[in-house]
Design a protein around this nucleic acid. Structure first.
Length: 358
DNA sequence: GACTCGTGGAA
DNA sequence: TTTCCAAGAGT
């Protein structure tokens, strides 16, 4: 079949037919049969999943989604939760501004909107943490509004389907236009999820499974043999390496000296160990005078835009210790799982060193 | 438009 | 080991 013989309606129909048979079963979804029959998923669960899924894999999100909905089944429950609880439960998932905005958004919906999410893209995008993609996704999936989502999956599928070689992000408007032409008036929510499922399971970044793709016939890139090299992307800058020092001090009663990081910036709002700034070289900056010991080895961690090497120092602290910065977290209140990953790595290094010494 | 902002799995 | 990258948003 040639390109011109398949209309947008044909493409959309082929995709929905595939979705009806192969839709992934996910905790925040209803099935395609229920959706086609007019049922809708819980907007709270759709919103929560979409925020968690921003730049994050389905595999990583599942456990967090289950835990959040167990602790806070409704948006009102989440709105009433203490900041530290939500940040602690988000720890390890990354991009912590999402958690801060999640709480802001939940409290706006609960306190100002009567606990009901806006049903339109315009209403949703006005809320914190909800951008162009997420607003369209919630409107389409939760309310079956005829909105078009454009995420990494959709970009890849469109670039291949229409053999577009313009590099991202320049190509975004063009890809959006293409995606819009495929969005059907019936079942736009299922259509959105169908394109994303296709991108996640068939039209994958590396070695796409074109042989079993429902759109293999109309796909221009497959015909041209360029599918695997699309979409084109502009080259990224190399990551510099930064160095720093952090301090794990433990009082005789087992309490740890910790600090809450400021809301703005890296790991904003998260619990962590006090330390130096991170720069060209590691500098000494203990939070309190004590007998600090440098641990052998180091913590290595890579963030989005730099590598980090941390020197870890430990010290026993007196019961009457009065540090300039931070506060003590009681031995029984301390939870490793409340920490972002880089802070967990430092804790593990210190824990092992203390264990080996004993 | 350019930067910032996490993490873990796959190749 | 390094690179890529996953349902992006905020500044």
């Amino acid at each position: 079949m040639r390109d011109g013989e398949m209309t947008e309606i044909d493409l959309s129909r082929a995709l929905l037919g595939w979705y009806d048979r192969h839709a992934r079963v996910l905790p925040w979804r209803i099935g395609p049969a229920e959706s086609a029959a007019g049922q809708r998923p819980d907007p709270y669960r759709v919103w929560l999943s979409e925020v968690m899924l921003q730049q994050t894999t389905v595999a990583a999100v599942k456990a967090y989604f289950e835990r959040f909905t167990m602790l806070w089944p409704t948006v009102d429950d989440l709105a009433a939760a203490p900041d530290e609880s939500v940040m602690g439960e988000w720890a390890g998932l990354g991009y912590y501004a999402r958690a801060r905005n999640l709480l802001k958004c939940a409290r706006m919906v609960s306190n100002e909107l009567g606990g009901a999410f806006p049903q339109t893209r315009e209403g949703l995008i006005a809320l914190p943490g909800i951008g162009p993609y997420t607003a369209a996704a919630i409107a389409a999936i939760a309310f079956d509004e005829p909105e078009t989502v454009l995420d990494g999956n959709v970009e890849r599928v469109m670039a291949r389907l229409f053999d577009i070689h313009t590099p991202l992000p320049t190509a975004k408007p063009e890809l959006m236009t293409r995606a819009e032409t495929l969005t059907p008036r019936r079942r736009p929510g299922d259509h959105a999820q169908a394109v994303m499922d296709l991108g996640a399971t068939i039209c994958t970044p590396k070695s796409p499974a074109c042989g079993i793709c429902p759109l293999r016939d109309p796909c221009a890139a497959r015909r041209a043999g360029t599918a695997a090299e699309l979409p084109k992307k502009t080259a990224k800058k190399p990551k510099p390496t930064r160095h720093g020092t952090i301090y794990l001090g433990q009082r005789g009663d087992g309490a740890w000296l910790m600090e809450r990081r400021p809301d703005k910036g890296l790991l904003g709002g998260m619990l962590g160990w006090p330390g130096s700034d991170w720069g060209e070289a590691a500098v000494d900056a203990p939070p309190v005078a004590a007998d600090w010991t440098v641990l052998p080895g180091e913590v290595r961690h890579t963030f989005t835009h730099f590598h980090l090497v941390l020197s870890v120092h430990i010290a026993p602290l007196p019961l009457d210790c009065a540090p300039e910065r931070g506060f003590f977290v009681d031995k029984h209140a301390f939870r490793r799982s409340d920490l972002p990953t880089v802070m967990r790595k430092a804790f593990d290094l210190a824990r092992d060193a203390i264990k080996d010494r004993a």
